[in-house]
Each structure stands twice: as C-alpha cells, then as structure tokens.
Write a protein that binds this DNA or RNA. Structure first.
Length: 647
RNA sequence: GCCGAUGUAGCUCAGGGGUAGAGCAGCUGAUUUGUAAUCAGCAGGUCGUCGGUUCGACUCCGACCAUCGGCUCCA
C-alpha cells in the first residue's frame, strides 16, 4: 500500500497509508506528541491546506501528501462546524418527534443556527423543550456522521421517496452532477459539510425561538416554520452567551427610555413615540447641534407642508412604489397624503423662483415630521416607527459642483461621527436596483461620482449591487455599536429622476437652461432611531451636552436645602440643565436614584459646603473633595458645551 | 402583512371557574438624614378590547388591538 506524507503545524511529518482518514492521522500525530494531545481540544474537523484551505470532515480519506491542521470546536471554523451539525441534530430530532415534517434548509448564523421546516400545524414554543430533549438523546447515542457522494439524480430519487419535496427542489437546482449527503442514524440531509464526526461531538446548545420564514426568502412563497438555536464549544460558553444577551437587554432603549423617562408609546398611535420632557431635550439638543453645523456648512433651513395632494408623489414616482405605505385621505374629492419624505416638497420649493447658476448650490434643510405606514409587524420602539423626523436636506447644484458637494457632506459626516466618538464606520456604495427611474447615463455618471468621492476621502468601500433607491444610487455610512450591530446613519444619494420629473431648471453662464443635480442626504438619519442607538451604545449614559438633566444637587438634609437651591440656580444661570432634589429622603436614597437615572453630574451639599460656599461632586461612582462653587460651575459648564460651535 | 409568544395597579411581577395580591413609585405622617433604597399608615385595578360557553369568567373558547422575538419590506 502506498504511503503519503501528512505535515502538521508543528512541522512534524506523519507517514500514513493512502486513504487514512484525517481524524486518524491527527490522532496518530497527537499520540506521538503527548503534550500536544493535552494541549489541543478534541478536534471537530480538519483544515486540509493542500486542498485549497478547505475545512473537511475528520472522516475524509487522505489520498495524497498534504498539510493538515486540526480544527477545535472553540475556533471560528470549529464553531461553524458545531453549529451546522447542531442544525442537523435539531432536524433529526424534529423528524423523530414529528415525522410528517419536511426539512428545507438549516444554515449557520452569527452565534448559532436555524432550520426551516414545513409542518402543517407549525410549531409552538412548548415544542422546543421536547425537541431539545430529543436532541440530547441523539447526542447520547453518539451516532457516527457519515458523508456520502451520490449522483444528483440518485439524490433526487431518494429525497422524493422520502417525501422531502423541498429538498428535491433544492437538489434539482444544483448544477453539479454529484452531491454530498450526510447520514447520522436514520437521518439523512443534503449538505456540503463538513460536520462533526459523531452526534456526541456537539457540546452545548439551546433552542431559542420559533418564527415564520418564507420559502427561499420570498414573501410570495409559502411560509415555513423556522426554529432558532445557539450552539457553543462548552456549557460555560453557552452560559456566557446567554448572559451577554441578558446584558444587552439591560441596554435596550425601550427599557432605558422608560427608566430615563425619555419617551413612551401608546396603542392610540402605534409606532408614534410620545417624547416626554426629557426625551424632548435630547431630541431638540440634537437638532440644535445639527443646526449649528448647518450655519457653517452653508445650509438654509426651510419649513414645508405636512400634507399634499397625491399628485406630488405621482410626479416623484413615490406613489407607485409606496402608495400602500402612506397615510392617505380623501377630502372634497381630492386624495391627499401625509408626507413620508421631504424631497418632492423641496422640488416645488426650488421651482418657486427662477434660479441662476450663481445661486447654486442651494441646500434646503428640513427637520419636518414624516409619517410612513410601516407594516404593523415591523414596528419596534424608536428603531422602526411610523412617525419620525430626519436631519434631512436636499442640495441642488450644477454638475460641476457635484464633487465639492459630496466632499463637503463627507466632511460634515466625519465631524458629527467624531463628536459622538463613532470610530467604527464602514462605508457602502449601493447601486442601481432593478426597478429604477431616470436615464441610464445619469445613473452611470452618478455612481461614478459617488465612487470618486469615496476614493478621494480614502474609504474602503463595500459595493452593494442593486441596493440603491429607485431614483438614484447612494452611499451609506454604517456605524458599528458596542453590541456589534451595524446601523446605517448617514446617507447621501444622487437623484437621477426627480429634477427632470419636476422640470427643475437653472440658467447657466451661457444663458441656456439646464437641469440641476439633486442630492438627498442625512447625517444622523432618523432622530428617533439615532436616539435609540445612542442610548443603547452609551447604556443610557448620554454625553454631558445631551443629558436631559446635567447636574443634580443633593442636599444632605433640609438644613442645606436653601443652599442646594442656590447651587442649582448658579448652574442654570450658566446654561446648565440642573435641579435640586429637595425631597425628604436620606442622601443615600437620592444618590442611588440619580445614579439609576444616569444623571452625569451629582453635587452633594451639606452644612459644611454651605458654610464654605463649595460643593462636593460625585464623579464616577465615588465622592470627591469639595470644590468652590464657582469653579465647579465653570468646569461643568465648560464640559457641557455642545460640540461643533464656531471656535 | 405573515409565523410564534405575551398582555393583571404608574413600573416590575405573583395568582387562579366562586367577582384580585406583593414590592417599588404615589399620597399622609414621623424621621433631619454625609454618598446606591428610613419607618408607619393610606390610596390605587371594568385582570388589553369585544363577543361566546357557564348558575357564575380575570381564569375556558373565539375575534380584534397592542407589545415582544423572527420573516418579508424599508422612499
């Protein structure tokens, strides 16, 4: 029998007969290197370098010389394998408990996996513990997992016999002539693999939720039942993950929004937040901040109607695309709508007078409230609402000014992200979708301009083909928060349709008329969503300049009440949002409450401070030495200055 | 909109076919407090809404509404 050489990471070379399984080769190597065996966790798969760096089953026969690296369960690749195998494990358990169920697909996702099933009665949450129990039983059986390669027609025939019609459909769509199947006990699934060598190698998992999902992700197709699960290399890691989820819940803006008394939602207007006084402070302070920047970046603010005849959106093209998602009403035989966006209104505003190239660029900023009839099932806190406002603006300029305008916008975005300390930003370029308005050459020029601007700004860009708006391509600035979620905040879009559809013109230097270039742009995006993201990112500890209450003065007893009031007034006189907590409570109680409400500056005053005209600040959870009142006010007022002011 | 779950006092939650309970918050009083919860008393609920079953429904059934987790969508 011919022998082959298997080279390991440590340089050791193992001579084994051709056809030896990868797992066997790893075992031999580990036996020779006792320390290594102790060091390396039990592998769940192997990386076969000579074969295109692919991760393969431990049961894969080695046929030629190769480099082989064990893949441990707790490695990135290993977790993928474990999770994929957990998905198969779940499908097997489901088939045992509910044989009438058809299996479809079951991929790995971040932190876990899911499997989509077709079952006439669907699944209830109570089914999950039963399925989990069966999964544990199958783990205990430690069934070997076996890979089999079969001709595609053969696979189709077998799955058809099993009544797995979705699998048949999937296999029929595979171009290759041979497909791989994975067996474990009585269960067989179409799969590329790799998988763990046996069902006993799936260390820790939990089923988390049931959901509906559409076959092939298309709402026109029938609905399947999706079961989500999470799987880890050990029980400890599973527990740690579940704990992280709990902690994320503590930062949820819906919870904090209540604790901090920022906003509430009421069934009387679903998806339309009520901003409480404190929430309104945050909201308005953000608007004032952006207004301050507009003064420097050359925007002019406008105020435009909330309600228009629908003719407006028939012209813009929105009516066709979004009619069902608008608040519409008929009055005196005319159909009206509440505006879901500002752009068409701004086009009318632009057309109220004749423009010269000398007027351009025109930059209309608008903080109007917008209303969109978002489907009921999609509403979520401040993140997905029916009533919202953006730091919206539309720029009309000449083609020659376009590059400068894009550069100016990127500069403003950078300034804002810098002010919030958002340093993890990814940029996407979203190109022409299948359904689009406007001329192709405009689209091509617009996409080129956006590319140019991003290159100029030095961004590494991810291109999302076909993800642009129907009227133009866009750039998205995605911010990744502390919970590793990505949010598109700023966006700029070049409009390839509206200027022509609204017949917008300006007079050129040559005395001829031309169509202006139109940009749509926002930096914060929706104020509602921005507030939600900021609250979660900061765990409710908003930056001082945004905090609804910046200073709370706590008198030690009633004897210091008058002085506490004086301190709060001194703060207010310096432009700070300050209040004195004069309630008849012990100091510890008031401190606790101020901490829970995340008031950034706590100032304790007792008889000592009153006598010395000082305050005792409480920084990061600990009391500090008393400082003179004036110095305290000056320091806090300085730190609370809104960013972006003219120096 | 679709699938699954939840809905009891302002908030967090317990209860269960015979017409509701706690803690916190609120109010009143006592306490005058030195850095994360002082004590006592009082008050507070058509048990999400509507309909059905029942002698009787907050509890069982149905529809609807809202919220949560997903799917689709997101100008």
């Amino acid at each position: 029998m011919t022998e082959i050489s298997v080279t390991f990471e440590d340089g050791a070379v193992e001579r084994v007969p051709a056809g030896t399984e990868a797992g066997e080769a790893i075992r031999r190597h580990a036996e020779r290197d006792g320390a290594g065996r102790r060091r390396a966790a039990r592998p769940v798969a192997a990386r076969l370098d000579a074969d295109g760096s692919t991760v393969v089953d431990l049961t894969r026969p080695l046929v030629r010389d190769c480099r082989l690296t064990p893949v441990a369960a707790d490695s990135r690749d290993g977790l993928d394998v474990v999770r994929h195998s957990a998905a198969h494990l779940m499908a097997q358990a489901v088939k045992r408990l509910f044989p009438e169920t058809q299996i479809t697909i079951g991929p790995v996702i971040e932190n876990g996996f899911y499997y989509d099933f077709k079952r006439p009665d669907g699944f209830a949450s109570e089914d999950l513990p039963r399925i989990e129990e069966m999964m544990r039983a199958i783990v205990a059986e430690d069934l070997p997992v076996r890979r089999e390669e079969v001709p595609r027609d053969e696979a189709v025939r077998r799955f058809r016999e099993m009544g797995e019609h979705y699998k048949v459909e999937i296999i029929e769509g595979i171009p290759e002539d041979t497909v791989s199947l994975y067996h474990q006990g009585e269960f067989v699934d179409l799969c590329r693999g790799p998988h763990v060598p046996s069902t006993g190698c799936i260390p820790a998992f939990r089923l988390t939720s049931v959901a509906g999902a559409y076959w092939r992700g298309d709402a026109r197709n029938e609905q399947l039942q999706r079961i989500y699960g999470t799987a880890w290399a050990s029980e400890q890691e599973l527990e740690a993950y579940l704990k992280r989820l709990e902690e994320a819940k503590q930062r949820d803006h819906r919870r904090l929004g209540q604790v901090l008394d920022l906003f509430s939602l009421h069934p009387i207007s679903p998806g339309s937040p009520f901003f409480h006084p404190k929430g309104a402070v945050v909201y308005n302070t953000l608007v004032e901040y952006i207004r301050g920047l507009y003064a420097r970046y050359g925007y002019t603010e406008v105020i435009t109607p909330l309600v228009y005849k629908t003719e407006l959106w028939k012209t813009s093209g929105h009516y066709d695309a979004f009619r069902d998602d608008m608040f519409l009403m008929t009055i005196e035989d005319d159909e009206y709508g509440v505006k879901p966006m500002n752009c068409p209104g701004h086009c009318y505003l632009f057309a109220t007078r004749k423009h010269s190239y000398r007027d351009l660029p025109v930059r209309y900023a608008d903080f109007s409230r917008l209303h969109r009839f978002e489907p009921s099932g999609t509403l979520a806190g401040l993140v997905r609402v029916r009533s919202m406002a953006q730091d919206d603006a539309h720029i009309y300029c000449t083609p020659q000014q376009l590059d400068d305008e894009l550069e100016r916008f990127i500069a403003m975005t950078r300034e804002v992200y810098g002010a919030f300390g958002f340093d993890r930003v990814e940029v996407t370029l979203q190109t022409r979708p299948e359904k689009f308005l406007g001329r192709l050459e405009l689209w091509n020029a617009a996409e080129a301009a956006l590319r140019r601007a991003l290159e100029q700004a030095g961004y590494a860009v991810t291109v999302l083909e076909g993800q642009g708006a129907f009227y133009g391509p866009k750039i998205g600035f995605d911010f990744r928060d502390v919970l590793e979620r990505s949010w598109t905040l700023a966006t700029v879009q070049i409009d390839c349709a509206m200027p022509e559809r609204f017949g917008l013109r300006y007079v050129t230097a040559e005395g001829t008329e031309a169509t202006p270039v139109m940009l749509h742009r926002a930096v914060l995006g929706s104020l509602e969503r921005f507030i939600a993201i900021l609250v979660e990112h900061t765990a409710g500890r908003l930056p001082l300049w945004l905090a609804p209450v910046q200073v709370r003065v706590l008198p030690v007893s009633e004897k210091a009440a008058a002085y506490a009031t004086r301190v709060a007034e001194a703060c207010t006189a310096s432009g700070l949002r300050a209040e004195a907590d004069l309630r008849n409570e012990k100091l510890g109680y008031k401190v606790r409450e101020a901490q829970v409400e995340k008031v950034p500056v706590i100032a304790v005053v007792g008889e000592r401070e009153a006598a010395a005209n000082t305050v005792a600040p409480r920084g990061d959870g600990a009391p500090q030495a008393a400082v003179p009142l004036e110095a305290f006010v000056a320091r806090v007022a300085g730190e609370a200055r809104r960013p972006g002011g003219v120096a």
